[in-house]
Design a protein around this nucleic acid. Sequence first.
DNA 1: GTGACAAATGATATCGGTCCCATCAAAGGA
DNA 2: TCCTTTGATGGGACCGATATCATTTGTCAC
Lengths: 361, 361
Amino acid sequence: MSRPPRETAAVPAEPKPGRRTSQRPTIRDVSRLAGVSRMTVSRVLSDPELVLPTTRDKVLKAVADLGYVPDKTAGSLSSRRTGFIALMLPTLTNANFAAVAHGLTEALREANYHLLIAYTDYDMAEEERQLLNLLARRPEAIVLTGAMHRRNASRMLMAADVPVVEIADLPSQPIEHAIGFSNYQVGRTAARYLLDRGFTRIGALAASPDGEVTDHRGEERMRGFEDELRLARLPTDAVLRHGSAPVSFHHGATAFRALIEAQPDIEAIFAVSDLSAVGAVMEAQRMNIRIPEDISIMGFGDFEIGREINPALTTIHVDFRALGLRTGKMLVDMLASDATPAPSVVDVGLRIVERASIKDR
Amino acid sequence: MSRPPRETAAVPAEPKPGRRTSQRPTIRDVSRLAGVSRMTVSRVLSDPELVLPTTRDKVLKAVADLGYVPDKTAGSLSSRRTGFIALMLPTLTNANFAAVAHGLTEALREANYHLLIAYTDYDMAEEERQLLNLLARRPEAIVLTGAMHRRNASRMLMAADVPVVEIADLPSQPIEHAIGFSNYQVGRTAARYLLDRGFTRIGALAASPDGEVTDHRGEERMRGFEDELRLARLPTDAVLRHGSAPVSFHHGATAFRALIEAQPDIEAIFAVSDLSAVGAVMEAQRMNIRIPEDISIMGFGDFEIGREINPALTTIHVDFRALGLRTGKMLVDMLASDATPAPSVVDVGLRIVERASIKDR
DNA sequence: GTGACAAATGATATCGGTCCCATCAAAGGA
DNA sequence: TCCTTTGATGGGACCGATATCATTTGTCAC
């Protein structure tokens, strides 16, 4: 039984004719409610020490009452600090790369940086697109894996005017900083290890570099491996490129079988990744080939599964999580001081983990 | 032989007394060089059709000459669209969660959204902190895994006024949308499967929920498993909570040994994850326990390694990559239309993958 | 009492884009 | 011819914070 509202009274205060405005409270709403200026609110949230406790409490109460969450987009624009660190990876579905991201995040958390991850699925054209996307977000530093940047990408990075760190793979010509290890050395070390134990019929398992995607890092390992064999005047024809990257357990299994068929008298095998190595061990079990009595196998990456299989896998270890941590710490320090440190290259080295998959002789 | 510059000439045009300005070119620089307004530059980059080809070319040339990369921070602030989709995960170092991220990215790429990833390491307090961080970036949607949000987190999400999708674990009380499966059903299905094959001495391997971190999803599976056993009037004392989350291959190995010692006559085991199941199989090999002749084992997650071990692992499969893809597509559609669709809950179900680790009887 | 200085707070310009609307020229219709 | 419509472009306000500098107030030494 209510009368229709009278026209004159009904019209609500027009919310301004301009841009439609959101419902979310802004710093302005907080400042009004707390009866202070916006600047004071900003101070309470970013450097509370600067504000009198009584004022602070008023502001914090207003923040809580409104459910105010500051808009970092606006803050970033104004302060010219986004709090982003960009990370470019080939893929996330690889335990080692995931570990890098994990370590990085951990190191960056305390300094309140947020990782901005992009990945390329081993696709170089995608790398360039992603790099542009990242750069558009104005990260305060850029972390890259691998040294296979196209010319354009390199140019964009130089122009970006933020610290660039290349990790995992030590490039021959670093853009700026680099923390990692040499995949080429991994290959040579593996070959040396097998040679030192007296093997002479030595093979390797890798993906074909001609596939749709190329695993440059893996290919570097193979190059080192072959070089070391050649230095020992041993043939490299048992270094098998089989299937397409990225490798997997299944890749290892099929590649192993193919290698055995091609080179039945093979004595020792280096797999480009523990994934392949583990797959090979599993296939060997199926073929009733004893590891290491009949054939010795070693891998790279020290994945957890390698510790648990039978026999446990001898491998080359690189601590990827520590790599991420270290990179993160370096960046935090670097960004805290506004000095621009000289470009640095750190080789974290590698370590052979001797387990049971190599025959003792 | 150059004379020192005279003082009067040396003073360069002061770059304004105000805020220090960066070197990076802005849209203003592009517009000046191209002889058009800023708006025209903006149009060329976001909707080229609106601009005359001749003008467009002038602008694009200026963009290329300057190496201009638009600042999305500024663009986001103005347009109120950040292009971010937030994703919260327990961890990245789990193949299934990584697969979710992968699928999501893929679906979002075409619509030019960027995933903003945060993870909690299974820590609920961290979840809340990370959520605040994410919200401060003003994502256009939020994707969460798991239904274990604290009260505060839920409140923040409701207030955020963006679509929320909970994935992987179907919550009993969804915040808004949900796409996933029921971990409880996983447990019941596993138990049902073992019961149907006539096993009566049935156990399970899981992490202890009292550890530093709790894997709520895994615990749900155990709950379902135990319920189904109870319904069949079977004891649940062989459902072993051992070690701390998150589980691993090694966890499976030690838990398996502990279970065998406590319950030597066990017939069949359900492991909370393929990781544990594989570890258990490896430990069984070492203990000379034959799988499946002596003990049957099944897992959850359908990790690649399960397909390759001997015997191949029977498991429960959920397609996490497809889950991510589907979620991404849904979000893209949702954000394209400004209508707010009704909350939806989609159960993608699960599938038993029968392989060789369960005894045929 | 007063000047010097520090501490707390406020006013305002600005970050680099995009939104909204205005302007202007060209095309088409009555 | 004049009016309307459409297409291309520009002008200026604005998004929501923070940087910078100014102002106010309080404290202390002389």
